[in-house]
C-alpha cells in the first residue's frame, strides 16, 4: 500500500515538474514584466521542434539538444521582444492578448507547414528509458531525470534572482522602472534578457515534454491552459510559487485519477477554483 502511495506521489510530482519547466517563464514575464504572453506555449513548441530537428536531421544526442532548445528559443523570443512585444509593454492587457494569440495562430501554421500535422516522436536514449526499482517502488528513469532538471532550475532561478547583481537589476527594473533608469540600469536590455530567459525555459520545457506528451502544431494551444493554471495558482512572479503549484497540481491530478477516477478530469479544475477563491493571489503571490 505504501509503495503504491509513494509511486503515485512520485509520478504526480514528476508530471508537475514538467508543468513547472513549461510555465515558470510565463510566471516571470506575466508577474515581473506585466506582459500577458499567451504565445508562451508556442515558444515551448519551438523548443520541441528544435530538439526534434537536431536529433533527426543533425543526429545530435538528446541531452545535447536540450541546451540548444533553450538557446535557440531564447534567441527567437528576443527577436520578437525587440520588434513586437516591447511596443505593448504599456498597452492594455487586451491588446497584449490579441497580439500574442495572433502569434500563436501564426506559429501553429508555420509548424504545420514545415513539419506536417502528424505527431512527432523522438527516441530518448536507452539510459533514460525504463525504470529503477528502489525498495519495491519502481521509479521511471525519465521522470527521475525530469525531477533532477526541475530542482536544478529552481535552485538556479531563485539563486539568480535573489543573490546576483543581475537578479537585483531585474527586481529593481520591475519595481520602479523610472527609478531604475535613473540609477543607470539599462531597463530595456534587462527586460529583453528576462524575456529571453523565460522563453528559453519554455523551449527547454517543450523539448523535455515530447517524451511524455508528444509534439504537434497544436502544442501551443494545448498546454496554454495548464501553464496559466500553474502561474495563477503559484502566484505571479514567484518562482517558488510556480514550483509548489506545479508539484501540487501534478500530485492532485495523478492521485485524483488513481483514487477517484470518475472525478479524475474534474479534480484539477476544482482545486483551481477553490484555491483561487480562497487565495486570489495564488499560493505565493505578492502582488
Amino acid at each position: 500500500m505504501t509503495t503504491q502511495i509513494v509511486g503515485i506521489l512520485f509520478d504526480g510530482l514528476a508530471f508537475g515538474m514538467l508543468l513547472f519547466v513549461l510555465s515558470v517563464g510565463l510566471s516571470v514575464t506575466l508577474g515581473l514584466m506585466n506582459f500577458i504572453n499567451l504565445a508562451h506555449g508556442s515558444f515551448a513548441m519551438i523548443g520541441g521542434y528544435v530538439t526534434l530537428t537536431l536529433m533527426r536531421e543533425g543526429g545530435w544526442p538528446f541531452l545535447a539538444t536540450l541546451p540548444a532548445a533553450f538557446v535557440i528559443t531564447a534567441l527567437i523570443s528576443v527577436a520578437f521582444e525587440r520588434t513586437l512585444f516591447r511596443r505593448l509593454y504599456r498597452s492594455t492587457a487586451l491588446n497584449q492578448v490579441l497580439l500574442t494569440i495572433g502569434l500563436v495562430f501564426v506559429s501553429a501554421a508555420i509548424a504545420a507547414y514545415f513539419y506536417g500535422t502528424v505527431q512527432q516522436p523522438i527516441q530518448v536514449p536507452d539510459y533514460l528509458r525504463g525504470s529503477h526499482e528502489i525498495a519495491g517502488v519502481s521509479f521511471a528513469t525519465y521522470r527521475l531525470f525530469l525531477l533532477v532538471v526541475a530542482l536544478f532550475l529552481v535552485a538556479l532561478l531563485i539563486g539568480g534572482l535573489e543573490y546576483t547583481r543581475f537578479g537585483a537589476r531585474i527586481r529593481a527594473a520591475v519595481d520602479d522602472q523610472r527609478m531604475a533608469r535613473g540609477l543607470g540600469i539599462d531597463v530595456d536590455s534587462v527586460f529583453a534578457v528576462t524575456f529571453a530567459l523565460g522563453s528559453g525555459l519554455a523551449g527547454l520545457g517543450g523539448a523535455l515534454a515530447i517524451e511524455i506528451v508528444g509534439l504537434d502544431p497544436s502544442f501551443g494551444f494545448h498546454y496554454l491552459v495548464f501553464m496559466l493554471i500553474v502561474v495563477a495558482v503559484g502566484g505571479l512572479g514567484s518562482v517558488g510559487g510556480s514550483f509548489a503549484a506545479a508539484a501540487l497540481l501534478g500530485i492532485f491530478d495523478v492521485a485524483g485519477k488513481y483514487y477517484v477516477p470518475a472525478l479524475g478530469s474534474f479534480l484539477i479544475y476544482i482545486v483551481l477554483i477553490v484555491l483561487l477563491f480562497v487565495r486570489p493571489r495564488g499560493l505565493f503571490g505578492k502582488r
Binding site: L228, V231, A232, F277, P280, G282
Partner: peptide, 10 residues
C-alpha cells in the same frame, strides 16, 4: 484580475 480570469476558465 488573474484569479477572476482563471476561475471563469475553470
Amino acid at each position: 484580475h488573474l484569479a477572476l480570469i482563471m476561475i471563469t476558465l475553470g
